[in-house]
Design a protein around this nucleic acid. Structure first.
Lengths: 247, 247
DNA sequence: CGGCCGGTTGAATCTCTTCAACGTCCGTGG
DNA sequence: CCACGGACGTTGAAGAGATTCAACCGGCCG
């Protein structure tokens, strides 16, 4: 085999990993973990890294999507917009989530960067072919879809049945859980960085920015949280916050 | 091959279809369409039909689920409940939807019959094995998951951003579409049967029963619908209803 | 007949929104 | 250098939309 050192290098076990993928989280926890060495190499040959600033658009609603991506870092917003402009964020994506809707020509979602986002992108056609031929990869896609379906349904309860205060508590719990799943069980406090503006939080929670702001100060006055600055919140006790979240 | 006439019979093309599956919608549009003759036969040997009355429970939250099912007819509610009893219906299932959460020991949902429901059930273990070995089947599961994910996210917009009136209009449109996908494009009117009580509608829309009732009469007074009886609604014009639904 | 369930309607209440003012931070340009 | 404008966030007061509480109706079953 004729290897170019700048594209891949041998692993201790004899397998090869493309340079591009070496330090990539998606290589292990993400979708790419299901790829064979050959597939990974083939994909890395046609993939590229992309960096986006907060607010920058990644995919527009009804766009013809020609490529998929893996989140390498940062937070992206998946949202839907009504004809009169009302917006609802339906999910946040973190590394190493897979970005894109397999088997559909166009997206029915808008994807925007909430923070600085780094992406690894690759052509839809190449990837779709790999999915057809690799059941493990299909399994990973199925796993992610089912996980996202669970998330979506949990959030539907938040949107449909919770009060503004509970929504804010739920959001903070959601964040704490997504930056580190262990946070859910922690007996004490946690500091979380808010990847969203008040306006984004409102769109995620089905509220207005004013209500978001008010409920945050209400939670602070109840000693449940501490507002370090507008982008950092200290959750003083995870169990009490979860209590407050209602479920 | 030693065939028992009560279990299967030969098809014109030489394949065999188990008696049980002959008239089954799921055999074609549903999950079972991806099964080989052999798999279908094996599955039919361990499957059984079940009929449930309205309100009857199919799967409880946190139940250890030992079996899956295909909807043969009727409507089932998938719902989640908060600790204090508030409830949110997260999706309705129609024939020939697949019922159950693959690869998870316990369900995080409650499933109840809304109308009379007929099910074809089969053991989780048998089916899970088939999924591992049959990429087409896995594909169908992935397709259904992605479709449900789209549904869920659309509904999140309804729950988070629409007014009560828009929610009711959205619900009627949702029903019309699920009874018959062509209804979405129809220029004229449609009569739909409501598979849910006012209380269920409220739990699906994140409202109270009183608001549901009031908004229905409001839509009637606006000449958008006609309330034939408490279980039948005539949508007088699909386009106008969709307009009213906001998106 | 009486009671219960599902549904509708009215009046009072409350939660969240709307509208408006104000404060801070930050980059731009006079 | 500092004044200006814009983005983001907080807070107050008034208002609207949905909920709560309550009464009532019709159908059904014991």
């Amino acid at each position: 085999m004729n290897q170019r050192a700048d594209v891949h290098h041998p692993e201790p076990d004899g397998s090869v990993t493309p340079r591009l993928c070496e330090a990539c989280e998606a290589r292990h926890r993400g979708i790419c973990g299901a790829l064979t060495d050959g597939e990974l190499l083939a994909l890395s040959r046609v993939s590229g890294k992309r960096s986006l600033e907060p607010g920058e658009n990644i995919i527009s609603d009804a766009d013809l999507v020609a490529s998929y991506g893996n989140m390498l870092s940062g937070v992206a917003k998946l949202s839907k917009t009504l004809s009169d402009g009302r917006q609802q964020i339906v999910e946040l994506q973190f590394a190493p989530d897979f970005l894109g809707r397999p088997f559909h020509k166009e997206s029915h979602l808008t994807v925007d960067a909430a923070t600085v986002v780094r992406l690894c992108t690759f052509p839809k056609s190449t990837f779709d072919k790999m999915v057809s031929g690799n059941p493990d990869l299909k399994q990973r896609l199925l796993d992610q879809s089912l996980r996202q379906l669970d998330e979506a349904r949990d959030w539907m309860v938040t949107l449909g049945r919770k009060t503004a205060r509970e929504k804010l508590a739920s959001f903070l719990a959601y964040l704490a859980r997504h930056v580190n799943p262990e946070n859910r069980e922690k007996p004490g406090g946690v500091v979380v960085e808010l990847p969203l503006t008040r306006s984004d939080m409102a769109d995620f929670l089905g509220l207005t920015i004013e209500t978001v702001s008010r409920q945050l100060t209400a939670l602070r006055k109840s000693n449940l949280i501490n507002l370090i600055d507008s982008r950092h919140v200290e959750i003083r006790s995870m169990p009490r916050l979860l209590q407050e979240a209602g479920d």
